[in-house]
Design a protein around this nucleic acid. Structure first.
Lengths: 182, 182
DNA sequence: AAGCACATGTAAACAGTTACATGATTAA
DNA sequence: TTAATCATGTAACTGTTTACATGTGCTT
């Protein structure tokens, strides 16, 4: 199951959409959602229909081909739910599976969301510790010369560490909002 | 010119490396650098050699095939520098061109780094404004029910907004360190 | 009448992952 | 002697982008 499938399932769980509407949501990268072009989405909708995760109904619309509105099948909803509560993959660069799951967190119970965020928090804390131990080896930033490769590395590490700190704070904020202690 | 090429050029600007050493650096995602597997790197090194951006010298080493150490050519250095000072592409999801450039910022003058970070800051500030205007439409988070899709959207938007705030703070920190006012 | 948003698709190229394949050197 | 690390490559597959292709309905 690819991330794109999960993104589409997450969108359709909120209601029926045409391929065009899905493509429009995924075309602009705001709100931390998945990004994809319509040329990727239309074939994927075909494949998901074949796999009985979604089903189309033809509705009136413009253009040379029939306009189709897709909705989740029961199997589709089950696949989405199973993915939401499966163990998180390790942190990786680029596209973020966890962030995609959060978009569908409204389908889960409070306890399930808390468990998901706690898993995330553990992974982020681990990564943050790696950053901190790496950074003791690089130096203080103020002591480094601008034309020293270590200065550039320090800048990169500052960015990476700040990023993980943000993600950790977010987890803690959400756990507080959910009424769970960190 | 693909991002992978720029990543390899940035690494080789710091000194000669074997394909294996490059692959090792790029295999672990720490320090905000580019991620790639050796299966992507070896063919790319071939292609870059053909394009005269890098050149190999055979050195003694283990295994059935010759061990090659690559270094930048003058043309390679020029391509790297030209990329570093070219206008930043728009913010996109996933892999981050700017973060990759920062890794090679030690090759630039103070003024060039300041210009680069200011460009970034402008793009991030623009995005942050988009987040803020979107979030007024969603609501307060505390008022929303956990099983409301808007609650999940609020969580996503909180994460995205916090991310942009982090990037903005990073720009300001770096500009201060560089002795430039925001 | 021109231009834009709606709407769906395909083709070709490029990027990236996983798995296969080989073998020397070094340390436990 | 067994295992890890060094070292380089290819093949098959999956994912993503860019460009091509078509035509309606609404607004200016």
């Amino acid at each position: 199951m690819s991330a794109l499938r999960h993104a589409i399932l997450g969108l359709l769980a909120r209601g029926a959409h045409t391929g065009y509407a899905i493509a429009k949501q995924m075309d602009r990268p705001l709100s931390y959602f998945w990004q994809a072009r319509h040329s990727q989405i239309y074939p994927q909708l075909e494949a998901m229909t074949r796999d009985r995760l979604i089903e189309p109904t033809t509705i009136p619309g413009p253009g040379p081909r029939p306009t189709k509105e897709y909705r989740l099948t029961e199997a589709g909803r089950e696949v989405l739910l199973a993915w939401l509560i499966s163990p998180l993959p390790p942190l990786q660069a680029g596209r973020d599976d966890f962030q995609l799951r959060i978009w569908s967190a409204w389908l889960l119970s409070r306890d399930q969301v808390v468990a998901l965020v706690r898993q995330r928090r553990a992974l982020v804390a681990e990564r943050l510790a790696e950053y901190e131990s790496t950074m003791t080896g690089v130096g203080a930033g103020d002591d480094l010369s601008l034309d020293d490769p270590l200065f550039a590395e320090w800048m990169s590490l500052q960015a990476g560490k700040g990023y993980e700190e943000h993600r950790l704070r977010w987890c803690d904020q959400m756990l507080t909002r959910l009424g769970a202690n960190t």
